[in-house]
Design a protein around this nucleic acid. Sequence first.
RNA 1: GGGCCACUAGCUCAUCAGGUAGAGCAUCUCCCUUUUAAGGAGGUUGUGCCAGGUUCAAGUCCUGGGUGGCCUACCA
Length: 474
Amino acid sequence: MAELGEKVELYPYSYDRTHNSVQARADESQLVESETKVRFPGRIMAKRGTGKTLFVPISDEWGTLQAYFRKDDLGEERFDQVKRLIDIGDWIGVEGTLFRTRTDELTVKVEDFTFLAKAIRPLPEKFHDMSLENKSRRRHLDLAMNLESRERFKLRSAIITDIRGFFSDEEYLEVETPVLQPLYGGATARPFVTHHNALDMTLYMRIADELYLKRLIVGGFERVYEIAKDFRNEGMDRTHNPEFTMLECYAAYWDYHDMMDLTERLIRRLAITFGNEGKLTYGDLEMDFNQPFARLRFMDALEEKTGQDLMTLSDDEVAAVAKSKGITLKKTMGRDKILDELFSELVEPDLIQPTFVMDHPKELSPLAKAHRESDGLVERFELFVAGFELANSFSELNDPREQRSRFMDQKALIEAGDDEAQPIDEDFLQAMEQGMPPTGGMGMGIDRLVMLLTDSNNIRDILLFPHMRPEGGQ
RNA sequence: GGGCCACUAGCUCAUCAGGUAGAGCAUCUCCCUUUUAAGGAGGUUGUGCCAGGUUCAAGUCCUGGGUGGCCUACCA
């Protein structure tokens, strides 16, 4: 290393590439025939020497191209330098003509080469998969070693780009709302709490975008959406990370039926673009998005599973049904919470094909408009696919008097010890009091969606830098 | 949160009943002018996660802690 550093530049400033690994393969016949000199940069992934020759697979973002160093071509001094001082992990650029080896591998016959960056720490061993922990903790190594990891994250990017394209086609305006909020709201979750020094005040990191996006509807924007990180101070597991990417969209004059149609258009488009003719495979499951999505009323689904019309039962009778289905009841659970538990237990596991679950109990949806026909229900839907809840949507509550009363109910829950209930947001109420048009809103968990579209069973596989405990304790 | 399991060389893993640690890859030396998990000969590589305890003796058994994985519960 010291010896090498004195002779050659190890960390130059740039390199002029003529071809990447894919372009070289695509233009192979023309490049080989005309003996065109290519300049190809990348990272050394292996080193196979045979006396006076050296084969070096070089990998770039898109794939790998092999370089062939030959003593007769480079001269003794230069060849010895390559052989001794090039290491796996180094970035180099090679210049030469393309040919096919005896074993039919497209190869650059090197006439000249340049160090682009010397690695002084080795890459991981190549024959075994890195553990998920190592992949997640040292993503740069995962990406360096595994083309399929690079492809998966490029796919994530393409999915999000396509979602933006969809909303652009639908004439939605992309906006940005605050991450740091004086009050959190829009979902039931515990927030991360932080502090603003100059104003000496507590701020919360958002758990949802909802209340700010609705202010924009009040302000007169008719269709808005945001794709951004939300933060929830809760458990982590295979499908949950403390910070996660959420899509929310709102449209004036729409109700939840309109939103259902929009959601179906979006998901079908993604399934066609990223799946196999509108079909997706997730683990053992096979989903078809070509047919109209099933639409299932929440209470009807429960009735089918329990054989009882739970709407007509008393609170005690509902609790008894839940117990008979093996659900552990807690004191803080209201009637609607119990219904929700029943639903999760009895219905959700069967929701493999895309299914809209509609018309939920009211208590669980403090920001949704009451159902126009059924007392005690709200106009809400959730989209389930492969057992995942992918999207959540309401006809948004826009009556400020009703909204205030719902907030009061939430406040009662907080006082009863529910630390996930939503606090009263006077500023938001004030905005609504100034008039919010009828509005449809929808939220979608992008990470879940990407898991589904990439057939990944762990959220860490589709987050570049998932949250991890610090290594080594403390 | 609860349960089960794991942690040994830079990486992936062995060490079966407690006797003081090994393989492949990487690395180092040498041979080899079309290799591709190249091959051949030889060498180096360890706070056995941490801290206690039991024992003549602990990577191995016990206790506590740390980190990770899987299952389970809840929010996306």
